[in-house]
Write a protein that binds this DNA or RNA. Structure first.
Lengths: 334, 334
DNA sequence: TTGTAGGCGTTATCAC
DNA sequence: GTGATAACGCCTACAA
């Protein structure tokens, strides 16, 4: 079933059928009605391949999600979906694992999907500096800082990770915590990890607390199991930590389980803080203290910035959306 | 940059370039080398649209995921990815929400991606009966029973939900539980819900326990919040339940939180069982008792069955993979 | 308002 | 082995 069949069926030409199916003007009501009916009846859908092959520009907004099991991005995509539904645009979501090069993928998909713009959910500075100049449509980097990169078509929305983490640590200190450990990722390969790490160090140093990365920092994967292992590694240091900051909620949940298994109560014996503000944090026992990223705001602002980019061709914007510290049951003052 | 440019650059024709880029025979080593080098140098990639438009059959295996936030399917897709990586095939994953018609989507994508076969992760009998005859490639319905449907190209792998749930309930009863409530979804619109519900009823009836659906069954969404609301609704019935069976782990986690908030301890005051065997169940407090679906086996068998379908053109198979009851900290004998 | 025809980037079928 | 060339299904001038 192709556009030709519909044309034959209705007696109109492929041109008219195409115009109707694309909601274009210059078609009589009669033709529109007949063609839509025929299409409906046979369940006809335009072939996206042919469409995109021919089109110079689609109505697509491309969303590149780096890290397919990142639940924060999951919520973000949902949020984006509902917002885009109310616009004339269409969302094309592409998932990739944490280790793929998001920019090269974007170059490839740009050529194929001919998107109006691209939303990067996660991304590394290194990849952008290397290849982003091959992309010419407006883009927004979401949850990472894109300022300071020399690109005229790259905006960004993100929360100030470093600042948020600094506040977390300082709050913990003000509540009497002196021995604070950290569970995070690889600071050499993740900008996010690096920012959050810097925030920790800044706060600890400002308060004259000693911190030995080799002893007090656990470098693990961003997962439940990673958090579990991280906490066990820290316990093995026999440092009597009073608090652990985890760079992701999933890590925090794994850590809480490990601590519990080793006979420690959270928060009575040790406090735990996460990062992201995942929905599940509200449901676990104890409720998780966390830095909550404003998914709503991230979705709204990134879309607005992208639209401004391709609708009015305006200059890139770099914007911080505030993160919110949420102190829940997993933390206790000493 | 197109295949033509590569042809011009290397002095060969588009035909030869195409053959090289598709690893086809009848190309001299010299040509192959020159063309691959040129492609490499410019980072050239074939345009998928043009490719799929022209191809009669791709090397794609299409995976249709119904319910994009279903974490069980998330693990399944990961499992499938790693397994397919070792084959000459390629996975194309398409996510859709719980309320879309998976079969119509499959018809559309079939036409476009020209897949060798399709894996349905989740699906409803109703949609299949209505439109599946429009699909002619081999398919496997995963986690739902596809037997009893009159299609020569539809296999299925699933766990015996009804049986598993029956065992759960009977085990609870044997441990002294008499007042058992259930949190689940909409039995009219979800085959899975219906199966699990039937299993409950069968076990309860067989043991002479009374069960009033209006009072003892909470129909909510498959989410943390759904489980929370479900548990609250049940508590409002003032029935002194000793155990709650939830049709999904996410529901169970929400329920545990609600029970805790209402001053009940799990499992001391009330036992909770989930379904799915999500990784996180191992990390929450208390560790969740659940019916663990064998993701490995589901992935392995569904792929094998699909390959058998399009490689040897054999008849559909319907197979049950055993689910495993995992009794953890969230359950206690009375 | 409608029809016609060329071409998007590839694959596939021929000849050579 | 290699090179033309006709599709694939659609969009888009342009002509009618």
């Amino acid at each position: 079933m192709t556009i030709k069949d519909i044309a034959a069926q209705t007696g109109y030409s492929v041109g008219t059928v195409s115009r109707v199916l694309n909601n274009q003007p210059n078609v009589s009501e009669k033709a529109r009605k007949a063609i839509l009916e025929a299409a409906e009846a046979s369940g006809f859908q335009l072939n996206t391949n042919a469409q995109q092959l021919k089109q110079v520009r689609s109505q697509n907004i491309l969303v590149l999600v780096k890290g397919s099991s990142n639940q924060l991005f999951g919520s973000l995509v949902e949020e984006l979906q509902t917002r885009v539904a109310a616009t004339p645009y269409h969302l094309v979501v592409d998932y990739m694992d944490e280790y793929s090069n998001e920019v090269l993928r974007a170059v490839q998909l740009s050529r194929e999907k001919k998107p109006l713009g691209i939303l990067f959910l996660g991304g590394n500075r290194k990849s952008f500096l290397a290849d982003f100049d091959r992309i010419d449509v407006p883009c927004v980097l979401v949850t990472n800082d894109g300022s300071g990169m020399p690109f005229g078509n790259l905006s960004s929305v993100f929360c100030d990770d470093e600042q948020a983490v600094r506040e977390v640590i300082e709050q913990l200190i003000s509540w009497g915590h002196q021995r604070i450990a950290i569970i995070g990722g690889d600071r050499d390969n993740s900008d996010t990890t690096r920012c959050r790490y810097d925030g920790c160090i800044a706060a600890l140093e400002a308060n004259g607390l000693e911190f030995d990365p080799l002893r007090d920092y656990a470098n693990v994967r961003f997962s439940y199991a990673g958090g579990y292992k991280g906490a066990e590694a820290l316990l093995a240091q026999k440092q009597e930590y009073t608090a652990i900051f985890c760079m992701a909620d999933v890590m925090a949940m794994g850590a809480i389980r490990a601590l519990t298994d080793h006979g420690l109560r959270v928060p009575e014996d040790i406090s735990v803080v996460g990062f992201d503000g995942l929905p599940i944090g509200e449901f676990i026992i104890p409720r998780l203290s966390t830095v909550s990223q404003d998914v709503q705001a991230l979705a709204q602002r990134s879309l607005e910035m992208l639209r401004k980019g391709f609708e009015t061709h305006s200059d890139p914007i770099h914007e911080i959306v505030p993160a919110q510290l949420q102190w829940k049951e997993s933390v206790k003052a000493i």
